[in-house]
């Protein structure tokens, strides 16, 4: 079994003369969490769509889990879970029915629907129509669908979209446990450095379609510290600490005790993300 989960070589995508992805060479190791960081329009979503065979590369090669990816060929997708850009589902169907569709089309066991509902804490909403869910719970449903068939590789495009701070922490812990306990490879894109820095083992920074930097989280943190040393005024540092304190206080007040070192879940924690 190759050690690489995702490999791209000279990957290019052009749209009517605009180069969205430019000679991208990427290697994601099995079992790691790889953060694909870039500003809006950097080429993150286009790359993920090419990895999933949703769009055709203008040039280059893609290998995922040891297989070349060609648009329209479906063989490898039973081993991949994904969330592309916005969390979408059939609005007239319930959470359970949406997942049942995924279960049937991935050939998963009947039990997997209930398992994924439990894993993403969607039990209170299982029989609610997807169109009536809050943004956060729609995102949970999309993640439940991605995880339902126990994939070896997760391709997640902005997975924290729509989550409140408590939800972000919860999803972060879930992805960490999937990587550590089940050996799932996670490739996640984001435009928020803090989100990636908390979770990823390695981080690639993409800009104008090119991978301009790639390093481990610790290396990147060290570089960032050196770069920003002395750049902040005492007031700015105080403001940053205040932001962290406020977030911690908010999490404690809304029942996220385990992440704050105080209190415990109040039992209505499932309300997080619900409007």
């Amino acid at each position: 079994m190759p050690d690489t989960a995702i490999s791209t070589r000279a990957l290019i995508k052009r749209y009517r003369g605009i180069t969205a992805v430019d000679a991208l060479d990427l290697d994601v190791r099995r079992g790691e969490i790889y953060g694909f960081l870039g500003r809006n329009g950097a080429g993150k979503t286009t790359t993920i769509r090419m990895l999933l065979g949703l769009i055709r590369p203008s040039g280059g090669e893609i290998t995922v889990l040891g297989r070349r990816i060609r648009p329209g060929e479906a063989t490898v997708f039973s081993r991949i879970g994904f969330l592309v850009e916005t969390a979408t589902s059939y609005p007239n169907l319930t959470v359970r029915e949406n997942l049942e569709i995924q279960r049937r089309l991935t050939g998963s066991a009947p039990r997997s629907v209930a398992d994924s509902i439990g894993l993403l804490r969607l039990d209170p909403y299982a029989d609610r129509r997807a169109g009536q869910l809050s943004l956060g719970n729609k995102q949970r449903l999309a993640l439940a669908r991605a995880l339902l068939h126990s994939p070896e590789l997760l391709l997640l495009d902005e997975p924290a979209n729509g989550f409140d701070p408590a939800g972000i922490v919860e999803i972060r812990e879930l992805l960490r446990s999937l990587a550590d306990e089940r050996g799932v490879t996670v490739f996640m894109s984001s435009h928020i450095l803090a989100e990636v820095a908390h979770l990823a083992d390695r981080i690639g920074i993409v800009h104008d379609g090119r991978l301009i930097e790639e390093s481990s989280r610790d290396e990147l943190a060290a570089k960032a510290r050196a770069f920003a040393a002395g750049a902040y005024t005492p007031e700015e540092r105080e403001q940053a600490l205040l932001t962290l304190d406020l977030e911690r206080y908010f999490l404690a007040r809304t029942g996220e005790g385990p992440h704050t070192g105080e209190g415990s879940r109040t039992g209505d924690g499932s309300k997080s993300g619900d409007s």
Binding site: R49, L52, G53, L54, G72, A74, T75, V76, F77, S78, I80, F82, V84, E85, T86, T88, S89, Y90, P91, Q102, L105, T106, G107, R145
Partner: peptide, 15 residues
């Protein structure tokens, strides 16, 4: 219009 095509087309099913 529901933006579910991307979910449908990346499944292990011939399109």
């Amino acid at each position: 219009s529901d933006a579910t095509a991307k979910n449908m087309l990346a499944l292990p099913v011939g399109r």
